[in-house]
Design a protein around this nucleic acid. Structure first.
Lengths: 145, 145
DNA sequence: GTAAAATATGTCGCACACGATATAATTTAG
DNA sequence: CTAAATTATATCGTGTGCGACATATTTTAC
């Protein structure tokens, strides 16, 4: 056991996580091209299809991203006509983000998008479930940190 | 079971993978700031500490990245003085990337960097091992695709 | 031996993702 | 009731990560 062993790619969890995230993204992108969405725009729309209306803070929390990522993102989705953005009447600090008719229509086309990651990468049901459980354990840990 | 269920964030494996990768990255960045390295530069250096000399193609394969990501990256590492870049004498298409003395020295400081992802996020040994195994199964699947 | 295919790398433009910093609106403390 | 703290969002600069395209070198086919 060498003191440098922790500096080997193959001994680090961070690396496969990072590489797999990229690999999944590359798998999605050609499918999302048909909807004219990037991957991040797609997960924003997933939230919008579920909630219909959110403010920016809720979006940030749902996606584990910061405002400096979300702000330009929703601007682009607004330009594409999938959402509307306005100031909240009651608390003018809040941004009210509402899905449009076109945004709702996009959901129909999106149904065909999500590839089964398990199938695509030859995981068993059991492995997929386990992976899911461990990832969410990490994601939910120290939520407010 | 709704036909739109696959469009819920909570039913997709892609999302927690992506979010966890980002979360791990955020955990590393403050530690890497002391080495004046970004996360991607760090994993390049991990390869260099192990191999000492590689060409660009090997680097791309090791990190699962493309040349258009790697090329500017190694330029920055060269500017920082951690690697040297030259054309291979035998096959002038190849880039010979060699670690410098300073690059080797950086390894000493880097030993203290890698946080235990398992500990940081409260995973058991068993969970960490399982996560590792499944991630590499995905990463290694259809390697040539 | 040379034209064509393959290989390794480089460049461009776009869209994240981040820390740092700024601003405006609201809440809290005294 | 008002100054200070908090909250929600925006902006800036840097560094990825990608597809598309371009270039230089080597290998292959005939």
């Amino acid at each position: 056991m060498d003191k440098y062993d922790s500096l080997l790619l193959k001994n680090q969890l961070c690396f496969p996580t990072y590489a797999v995230a990229n690999k999944i993204l590359r798998k999605y992108q050609p499918l999302l091209d048909k909807l004219d969405l990037t991957y991040t725009q797609y997960i924003v729309m997933m939230v919008m299809w579920e909630k219909h209306e959110v403010n920016e803070k809720e979006l940030c929390e749902a996606l584990h991203l910061k405002t400096n990522t979300i702000a330009p993102l929703i601007k682009r989705l607004k330009e594409k006509g999938y959402i509307n953005i306005s100031k909240d009447k009651l608390d003018k600090r809040n941004l009210k983000i509402v899905i449009t008719k076109d945004g709702e229509k996009l959901k129909e086309k999106a149904v065909d998008v999500p590839p089964s990651i398990a199938t695509e990468f030859n995981l068993s049901e059991e492995e997929a479930r386990t992976l899911y459980k461990i990832l969410y354990k990490i994601l939910d840990y120290e939520k407010g940190e």
